[in-house]
Amino acid sequence: MSIQHFRVALIPFFAAFCLPVFAHPETLVKVKDAEDQLGARVGYIELDLNSGKILESFRPEERFPMMSTFKVLLCGAVLSRVDAGQEQLGRRIHYSQNDLVEYSPVTEKHLTDGMTVRELCSAAITMSDNTAANLLLTTIGGPKELTAFLHNMGDHVTRLDRWEPELNEAIPNDERDTTMPAAMATTLRKLLTGELLTLASRQQLIDWMEADKVAGPLLRSALPAGWFIADKSGAGERGSRGIIAALGPDGKPSRIVVIYTTGSQATMDERNRQIAEIGASLIKHW
């Protein structure tokens, strides 16, 4: 067993022997301040990774656009098919120029040779490549099948209805392509620590998230040296922004954090800054 596999296998073990965790309302004060600064709703939840206990939450059962955070769930569904012998990570998928959609920095470079399922998941999570996500959605049967996968996990809230990039439209009061912070946090925890996926697939999923290259201005910008984070960000229309993450000190994750916002007129930089400040408060009061 590799060191990384050992780390993920012992996530519940280490967490069980940690000192009790206590909620700190100071972080919620910052979440509410972010709402004021952005002029928009902000949803927040913080779960203990081992027990699933909610440590703090704000608007945990209000719907927010998922945006690209759905790509972690998508690759979880792909990995479940791999575990069941219905898919192979090494299978190569070929596609054409007509398949390319807006923001496809990886797939646009491989029109000639195609990409493997493993490479597509890596591109979808680490670079948020939209064509990679659409190609992977095709392998599982489309958005409705991802929703069905989530329902089978016990998540009857999260739903995907459309493809990239239309799913980022974020129309107010439109339930399409949305989740709730509580539902997303619980589902992410199941994917990373539950028995739904094999140990190898859980490790692969967290490795992809740990290698995320496009979430630097968010929670990662607030992390002290030595902290662990595996995350996936999302951005959408109407001032929408979000991030889902597993993080913790001492090089291992111990909490799940989900943050979503929508309806702001603020710039992307300002949305990023507010999420980073929430992260800084979380870490300060850990």
Rank of each mutant, 00 (worst) to 15 (best):
L89M: 11
A40N: 08
L49D: 02
T147C: 09
Q37V: 15
L192M: 15
P217V: 09
N50M: 15
I275G: 01
E237H: 11
D250R: 13
A182E: 10
P105D: 04
L100E: 04
R118T: 14
A230S: 06
S221T: 13
A215Y: 04
L136N: 01
R159L: 06
L218W: 02
Q97M: 15
T116C: 07
L79I: 05
A148T: 14
K53A: 14
V8C: 14
D129I: 00
A266D: 09
E108P: 07
S240R: 02
D161S: 07
R220G: 04
T193D: 09
R271I: 11
T69A: 03
D33G: 13
I283M: 11
P65S: 05
I244L: 09
L223P: 02
V82S: 09
L137R: 01
D207V: 11
T198Y: 07
P253L: 10
R176G: 06
P60M: 13
G39N: 14
H285N: 14
L89R: 03
I125E: 01
L197R: 05
T27E: 03
L19D: 10
G39P: 05
L38N: 06
R176V: 06
I140T: 07
N50G: 15
M66K: 00
A185Q: 01
T267N: 12
F6Y: 10
E26V: 10
V214D: 02
V106Q: 10
K109V: 12
L74V: 08
R255C: 03
Y260S: 02
G234Q: 01
L247P: 00
M115L: 13
I93F: 06
T178Y: 02
R91G: 05
L49Y: 12
G142D: 06
P181K: 00
T69K: 00
K252S: 13
K109L: 13
G39K: 15
P217F: 07
L196A: 15
T147K: 08
F22E: 15
L120R: 00
S68C: 01
A34N: 03
L192K: 01
L73Q: 05
F14C: 09
S122K: 13
I54V: 15
A23C: 06
P249M: 08
A200R: 13
A123Y: 04
T187M: 08
F6R: 09
E87M: 12
P105L: 06
R238Y: 13
P165M: 07
G226Y: 07
I3C: 10
L192G: 02
E35T: 03
F6T: 06
T262F: 05
P60E: 14
I259A: 04
N272M: 03
L136G: 02
R7T: 14
A245P: 00
R92W: 09
Y103H: 07
A235H: 02
E46H: 08
K232D: 00
I278N: 00
D113C: 09
L19S: 15
S51P: 03
Q274S: 10
F70W: 08
V117D: 00
I278A: 02
W208K: 01
K30G: 05
A40Q: 09
K213N: 11
E195N: 15
Y44N: 00
G90F: 10
R118K: 11
V101T: 15
E56S: 11
V101R: 08
T193H: 14
I54P: 15
M115P: 01
E237K: 13
R159A: 06
A235D: 02
F6L: 10
W227C: 02
E175K: 12
A124G: 07
V42C: 08
S122F: 13
T138Y: 12
Y95N: 01
G248S: 03
I11L: 08
E164H: 01
I243K: 00
V31S: 03
D155V: 01
I54T: 12
E46G: 05
D269G: 13
I278G: 00
P181F: 00
V82W: 07
P143R: 04
K109E: 14
G141Q: 07
L188K: 01
E277A: 11
Q274T: 15
D33Y: 15
F64M: 07
E145V: 12
P253W: 07
S51G: 09
E46A: 10
A230F: 02
L196S: 15
E35V: 04
E62I: 06
N152P: 04
A170W: 11
F13K: 04
A170S: 13
M115V: 07
A182R: 14
N272C: 04
S254R: 11
L49P: 05
V42T: 06
Q37W: 13
F6C: 10
G142N: 06
M209Y: 00
T178W: 01
G154W: 04
R189C: 12
A246Q: 05
T179D: 00
T138Q: 15
E61V: 12
E270Y: 08
L223E: 02
A276T: 10
L160D: 02
W163S: 10
T179F: 00
P181G: 04
I256F: 05
R176K: 14
V82M: 06
L223R: 05
H110D: 05
S281R: 13
L47D: 01
A230H: 01
T178V: 05
Q88M: 11
T139A: 15
L137S: 06
P172A: 14
V8E: 10
L38M: 11
V42D: 00
A245T: 05
A222L: 07
L218V: 04
L247Y: 03
V21S: 10
A245K: 00
T267Y: 08
A200N: 15
E62C: 07
S104Q: 02
G251Y: 09
Q97K: 14
D161R: 03
T138P: 06
P217S: 10
Y260G: 00
Q4T: 09
I45W: 02
P143I: 05
V31R: 01
W286I: 05
T147F: 02
A148H: 13
K32G: 09
A211P: 04
T107W: 01
A230K: 01
V42K: 00
G114H: 05
Q203M: 14
G76M: 05
S68F: 00
F228S: 07
M66H: 05
R63T: 09
L135R: 04
M66C: 08
R59F: 03
L28R: 08
T126G: 12
H151C: 10
A211K: 12
L120F: 04
R63W: 04
I283R: 06
A170D: 08
